[in-house]
Design a protein around this nucleic acid. Structure first.
Lengths: 215, 215, 215, 215
DNA sequence: GATGAATGAGTTTTCATTCAT
DNA sequence: TATGAATGAAAACTCATTCAT
């Protein structure tokens, strides 16, 4: 792993576990096994590093859902895909996703605006799927916006506790959450692991992970 | 409001919005309209303040669910109650609850152990209700533990966005989430605001809020 | 013990063991079992308290040696008496004497000048006795001033380690030191406890201690 | 002089004159002509600095007496050497030695234990010499332990007042104290400067001082 | 690329002291 | 006599960052 990569992954790890404000430059240097002065060869300011992590993570999420939902008109299929991708991303990349989800407040106003715009762009995929499903009478929810937020939070939580070394396989995790979401949307159908195969592939591709069950 | 109260509410507000590490003693002093030295009349260390906020908040949650579920054997009713109380608490006290949910990592090891123990005690009410419902065949979930975590995260998210001045009334919010949760548990029944009246009362009592629709 | 006395004895104890700068107002308050605000009823500033302790201690020493050596022309007797008194005072009042010996540097310039003047006044008794003994050819020392300092330091050290509950009785301690001093001055004569009886009485009187072997 | 050396010598000077608690970080920075932040490049905490000063000083004393007394069986010669070395060290390095002698109470418990152990190791040389002399009937003292403490204090006092620019030469100082000590031990023999030549050399070597009369 | 040295501004916390009650 | 409340100044120490090498 190059020094640049070490810096980035140290930042992801520490920002995720200790928070942006809880992580010092010296912590980063120690984790990356570099001097703190050397850090500045690979990053701008500490905030630049945070922004970079957040934007690449969000861009990847957006890429992934764009790819995986392209060409699908069925809101149920799209919803299933969105949930699966979100959960897989949070389970496979808990560091980056926790940073995105928890450290928005640490950003300065202009950087925050850019990040929030990306997050909104991403959430639009969810909003659209829910709306379409409601219009098609396959989803039943009195408060589509509230439901969207509820489901997003539900899925994001995975990054807080999922362990790839635990008994639960990634595909079963994704399957389970997809089912929870569809049930909550009033469309209680069984989801099979097979339905989510494409999602695993997209995640592997976008995040450059080895294609295997547990990444 | 006394100085001691001002310190506490300043801490809740700032820890919730800027995070523990993102909040300086000077920020607290300014928000509480006291000198930073005076702050130390009313608190021990900054961490003591955080611990106090977390433990009282968790004790209240535990009190509330203990009160509201006492004497109810029906897992569906208990689950409905747990969800409603959780959502109401997070909507009515977004500051305290966000601090509890997000700042556990900021605690030193011994304090964290105590807080986590309280949180586990609280989550046991959820675990029990889900187990009982599954045993009684009214809930259907292949992964009860995962489902519990998913639902808890879903409900906690409310503290991030709910606004009491928005169009959504507290009782409708609680109703909606209760329905989402019961659906996700495979028990899709309608929930009426009337069913949750007691929850509103318990919340008002435990958090010492004015008894009215929007607190 | 009155509050005023508690303040003073707390200060003596803490200044002696932790030093003036190492002792905080709150430490004093705790030791005296008073609030820190109440302390200020009984003292001026912290430095005033230190000055008071030092000056009363030095005045007592001066009183004691003036009393005990009055009317004695024999330099050997006077020296024996000075050593015994110094050692007894340091053994019986280790707190006050350690403060006098160690905290002079903590005083502001004007206060230091006053304290040093008192100390010099006291040391004059020693200087005079040594000079007289040298003139009378009973003491033999090439460097009277150096010898005076050496003997003073030797005797002051008692306050650092003597314990009244240990095996060594006060009168034996004084006897031993008197002999060491006379030997060092080239006048090696035996000193008997009986010779120092008056010293014990003077010390008991000046420091208001119960007249008994161990005070 | 390097920055690191400037920090150390500033600390020795200020800890010796104002005490550990009486010396602030800003005082050290000013004396060392560095910013207070830069200080922390060269030291750990303020206490680490104190510990380092004390331990190196004690190690040097131990080295010096080990070297100078090696191969000497005569208790009188050893005692003479111990006194001379102690006095020379305190006269030539009054800063370090005063810190060792006066600031032990400023240490935290674990650091204090280590320092006291070193001091005890050093004092064993004195204890042994006195015991051996008493056994050989060349020293006469009823209380060997008390005598040891008395002589140590007597010699340490030199650091409080000796000035290398004054009229008293180092070798005369050492000679005088050696004589005082031997007299106090009941072995009143003349000591000649020539007897202590080796001591001056050892001190010059161990403390890395220029070999000349006044260092 | 990499780093030791350096620092101004910042951190949390404690200081001695005052004062209204 | 006694104290809780209050504070400006200072304490020790860390911060993110720069720069000469």
């Amino acid at each position: 792993m190059s020094s640049a990569e070490r810096v980035r992954s140290a930042a992801v790890k520490l920002f995720a576990t200790k928070g942006f404000h809880g992580t010092g430059i010296r912590d980063l240097a120690q984790e990356a096994e570099l001097s703190s002065a050397t850090l500045y060869h690979y990053m701008g300011t500490k905030e630049d590093l945070l922004v970079e992590i957040m934007t690449t993570s969000l861009h990847r999420l957006i890429d992934a859902v764009a790819k995986a939902t392209a060409g699908s008109d069925d809101p149920v299929v799209r919803m299933r895909t969105l949930v699966a991708l979100h959960v897989l991303a949070h389970a496979a990349q808990p560091g980056e996703t926790r940073v995105v989800d928890n450290e928005v407040d640490a950003l300065s106003a202009p950087a925050r605006a850019r990040v929030v715009a990306l997050r909104d762009e991403y959430e639009q995929f969810w909003a659209k799927a829910i709306e379409d499903g409601a219009a098609a009478n396959v989803f039943h929810t009195a408060q589509p916006a509230v439901t969207r937020l509820a489901l997003l939070e539900m899925c994001s939580g995975v990054a807080r506790w999922y362990s790839p070394t635990g008994p639960l396989k990634l595909e079963d995790l994704a399957t389970h959450y997809a089912e929870l979401a569809l049930r909550a949307l009033g469309h209680p159908v069984a989801v099979r692991a097979h339905d989510l195969r494409q999602c695993l592939e997209v995640v592997a591709q976008v995040w450059d992970l080895p294609v295997q069950e547990g990444f």
